[in-house]
Amino acid sequence: MKIVVCVNHVPDTETKIKIGADSKSIDKTGVNFMLSPYDELAVEEGLRLKEKFGGDVTVLSLGGDAHKETLRKALAMGVEKATLLKDEAVRDSFGIAKGLAEELKTMSPDIILFGKQSIDFDDAQVGTMVAELLGISSVSVVVKLTIDNGKVICEREIEGGHETVETSLPCVIQAQRGLNEPRYPSLKGIMSAKTKPIQEKPAAAGELRVESIALRKPEAKAAGRIVGTDKSAVPELVRLLHEEAKVI
């Protein structure tokens, strides 16, 4: 089975984000970057498919040189091949999807795995767009994947429950938490990842269709409020929780 996992290089979840001087991008100084957590699930699933069906796994990323660190993380987990589609420009989801799709056309994989979204801009669009550009099916928010004789059965997470869908290879699968528990890379994996080559190519990315014009940080959380200190405060507390916080 020819498996490709598309991964993104995103700010670490513990990083405090600062907005850059242009007020439409983030200030990257001192920011740690990581393999996007949903993409990590996709890498794990790719490795499990390979272990089950044989074949090989390639990780693919579109972006600057810094993305190599994330590709190497996937190599350390056990992926054999990595390709970086080099591109330092500011891109929207379409631009990235176009670049990935152009490369994927030349690879003709049996299955393409994505995380359900990158945890930077949270667009959750690239996987679906890639499927559309390739003219293949796409299943999002997948928590269980079973492949049998080319038949693909996916369990998707939906509001309040699960949906089971069926499609066929080749297809795009977008991973949701619960799909698997990603393995730790071993020390040997980390060391051998240093010597595995990362293929570099210029990205044939698409032009910008959606432009970011401003970033704003969320309002600071308001301080807590003490409604009262004895049981006479309960009715007021219930009213506030119901009407203001809308949690009950």
Binding site: Y184, I190, A193
Partner: peptide
Amino acid sequence: TESQKAVQELARKF
């Protein structure tokens, strides 16, 4: 170094 960072991330997570 990059490999120190990688093993640090692994050991911290572990």
